[in-house]
Design a protein around this nucleic acid. Structure first.
Lengths: 215, 215, 215, 215
DNA sequence: AATGAATGAGGCTTCATTCAT
DNA sequence: CATGAATGAAGCCTCATTCAT
């Protein structure tokens, strides 16, 4: 069967080589400009940089949003994966956490659009990309928690929001103080250590707060 | 001096009452919409809400940017001042720090443009507004440092960047998890306590790093 | 009171003179090109002919559709009114009907967009413009009916559809055979005379048809 | 001749089977979508429905217009033929006329592009398709005229324009009042009967009018 | 010869800024 | 000096047609 269908494959393979190349060129160019300028870029700029016409771009991505989503999905995935690998490489659970943040924060320094949307994903958590990140963080959280290294009560959401928060700091300082965020990271991570036993405030509704206080 | 230029002053004072009123109306309206919608807002919307025409608006502020800056300067000042007062009210240096952040973060929750530009002010530190905040923080830093409560090596810039970083988290979570940032704040503040003695990394250039290590 | 409010009127009259002139220029130009080319015209062409920029056009008519509707409402009204006046001038009810059609059909000869939308108004009868026409026709129908001149069973809708139908014929033949539609009009009107007593088919649903046949 | 150019014919016959099949598929698909959506349809839609690529489509029909013309020629022919057959089946000349219109009008109800172009064919009478219709109508005209059933002075053009005119009414009302046009048809046909002896106006130019009156 | 990807002119609309009244 | 109308450069997107495979 693998050798069969010579007609069919002949009919379909030929044109796609170029199309795929173009599609990739578009995505690559888009990733570049989205990282540089955020989602406000002119679609024409992307077309120009990919070396294709507007029509080609719109054939592959009928709406600007589609292209943006595609790029961000990819970049989020790569970002999460690279951070995950770094974390996995560490033997010590705490080092895993530390390395994860370092890798992730280094990786988001120059990606404006990604951070723009990272922010959005909080209120729209169903957006792809954040899921992988959550999974990685969940694991790190569990691992450090099991090892008794993590401050009690710290949740995956806390760690995710910390990433988001520091990610913003990274972007802001990347141009003029490229390593400054590292100091903030140390501080925050130290605040996450198990030797801090003071309970964290809940962010629940008033009723729940009362209950948690009196229960 | 008061008697001088009677014609001139007569000619100019009368209209200036209106002019000032208009200017204030514009700034007030701009503050509103900038908080709500960020700097991407349509200038017409500002004119509409202030009840003045476009011409008047542009007479007072030749560029949209000028108006934005004016508003942000004002809002930054008020923001800084309100946080400063809260900090000053606290007797304990650490409580001062805590209250400062709480007040400041609560105050930036619904001000989109301010946080947008808070980010910019880092790379453009000459922009007004951040100065006052720096001053306040400097004081808090010194006070907590003198009391031996602050982790050694923590700088004003660290505390400023932390504010910026958490401010972003606040904006992101304000809609759906309005108090969540408080947990992050506790964690970060705990990381700032003096019982953490591990030195923070420098963010200096390689040469400086070497020097700081060997000096 | 008429002399009062000099400020107010001064504040408001001045700019509007130009604005109204522009608005009228736009509507006039639009009426022209819509008549010539139908609703498919480029908005730029309208702007060019009115001598205003795109922004001005869009200030007055936020959507192309708004402009089109405005023009068509106006043209429909004028069209209906002119036909109504002609009909009213006739003393004989039958002459009124004849004159109405002649006037209306002459008036729609060169108005592409109007006929385009006249067609639409059948399935979307709430659109303005057709109402006036219906009213006029209703009157003519009643008048001719009361005089015993109209074929029994003829409805306002029949006369309206006839107008629409002949209007199309007018447009088609206007370029090369400008008066040809007049022959069709005579024929149709003769078919509407009371001496034709054969009942017209209903266009009702099957059940109603059955009922009308057996009742 | 049949033996000549064996190579050439061999080279060409084989692919032509496919080519013809493709051409037919294109025309068939085009007929469908043109009927549904009119000539404004996207060429891609036609290619999609015919199952061929754009290149193939454009090889057979270098311009969209060419394809449209081809389809319309065909559809006009079929339309005319079907109406002709219906007319021929009737024994009574008047019934032939009636049946012809009924058949033709029923047949054009759902063919948007055909009616669009039916209109054009009037000013561009050399366009194919209308000829056959004219021939049929000419025959009907002659037949009814010979039988003394047709109003004197009625021409083939009158009947053709009536068809066009009613065809438009049919399209307009087809969605919401599917049989309403039948009433208009009765009225018009009654106006065509021989008992109306009033002469029809000429549509000639003034000079010709004068000549016709005095000659 | 078939495929369908590529092209790019042109359509609608927005908005910072200028200008006539 | 206030007003708000006018301007026009972009921005997003569609679609008839061409071209590489």
């Amino acid at each position: 069967m693998a050798v069969a269908e010579p007609d069919d494959s002949a009919r379909r393979r030929a044109p796609r080589v170029d199309a795929i190349r173009n599609r990739e060129a578009i995505v690559e160019a888009a990733a570049e400009v989205l990282a540089e300028q955020g989602t406000a870029v002119d679609v024409r700029e992307i077309a120009r940089r990919s070396g294709v016409g507007m029509g080609t771009l719109y054939r592959h991505f009928p709406k600007k949003e589609d292209l943006v989503h595609t790029v961000l999905r990819q970049d989020f995935s790569r970002w999460a994966e690279s951070a995950r690998r770094t974390a996995t490489d560490a033997e010590d659970p705490w080092a895993a956490l530390t390395d994860f943040y370092e890798q992730a924060l280094t990786g988001c320094a120059r990606h404006r659009a990604m951070m723009e949307n990272f922010a959005l994903t909080w209120s729209v958590p169903d957006l792809d990309g954040i899921r992988q990140l959550r999974l990685v963080i969940e694991e790190l959280c569990a691992r450090a928690g099991a090892a008794g290294l993590l401050r009690p009560g710290v949740t995956t959401d806390d760690l995710l929001l910390l990433l988001l928060s520091l990610g913003h700091a990274v972007q802001i300082t990347d141009d003029c103080r490229p390593q400054m965020w590292n100091r903030l990271l140390r501080i925050s991570l130290d605040g996450l250590r198990a030797d801090h036993r003071e309970p964290l405030p809940t962010d629940a509704a008033p009723d729940d707060v009362a209950r948690s206080l009196h229960g």
